[in-house]
Design a binder for these strands. Structure first.
Ligand SMILES: [Zn+2]
Ligand SMILES: [Zn+2]
Ligand SMILES: [Zn+2]
Ligand SMILES: [Zn+2]
Lengths: 128, 128
DNA sequence: CACAAAAATGGAAATGATTATCATTTTCAT
DNA sequence: ATGAAAATGATAATCATTTCCATTTTTGTG
């Protein structure tokens, strides 16, 4: 059996730990700030490098915020979607069962692989 | 009959024309270069402004390249979603029947009104 | 342990897209 | 014509991400 040697340096592990702890998505800048706040003097460059390497190894997912900023999350995290109020900003986390199925079906139909998706709902909440 | 007042200035029309002519997606920088090459001295600022306005008016779609750069494309009037190849950028317009239902259901369940949604699927296409 | 080679690190500068400013020009209604 | 409002575009400012490069840490070997 060939061993898929994972080289995982200290920084990689740190980033994984933070991502586990925070859950969900975070940008490189945010992750860097969190680590700094916790007393870790890790450099921004290293954060970017570690994230890049984790993405290459398919350990974290890379998506984009609406403004184009890269955001990362641990692969395999059960993700959820959001229902956001355009007026007060209140947000509800919702399951996306139907979406997951839809994305998968569509991707298959058109022969896409390594598929991901984004989906958000926005409107005016009952309080507004 | 209510008048759907569309204010459409010269620059907006230029951008629409270029997008029609080129078809597919293009970034602001690319669109600017194309116009320049054709002898139009339009400024980059104006290109960004026009595109932003067209996006607001739902006349063009805004997506993201893999590197986060914004790309624009004329959008058909009927609401649809996209299946985008992360590698070559090829895009398939798809119907979102399941999504529409999901968004509506979720919104109702949580008492939201004036609801909209976004949903995109991305992956690697069969050619890549 | 000693020591050199390789890997990792991080500060500073460079890059590149997008946005903010602001003075000037064009459009428009009276 | 004429003043107000909208549009324009050059320039500077932002801000995330990359590059560079010098320094530090880790690792393998005798
Ligand atoms: Zn609300
Ligand atoms: Zn989902
Ligand atoms: Zn492709
Ligand atoms: Zn839809």
């Amino acid at each position: 059996m060939s061993t898929a040697t994972k080289r995982m340096n200290k920084s990689d592990l740190k980033l994984i730990a933070v991502l586990e702890r925070t859950g969900g998505f975070a940008s490189a800048q945010e992750l860097h700030q969190i680590l700094r706040r916790e007393g870790d003097g890790i450099g921004l460059t290293t954060v970017y490098r570690a994230l890049q390497s984790l993405v290459d190894d398919k350990i974290v997912d890379l998506l984009r915020r609406e403004d184009g900023e890269a955001i990362y999350r641990l692969c395999g995290d059960n993700h959820h979607h959001h229902l956001v109020c355009k007026s007060c900003g209140d947000t509800v986390e919702i399951e996306g069962g139907a979406i997951e199925k839809w994305a998968k079906t569509m991707a298959e139909e058109f022969g896409f692989r390594e598929v991901g998706h984004t989906a958000e709902i926005f409107g005016i909440c009952s309080k507004c």
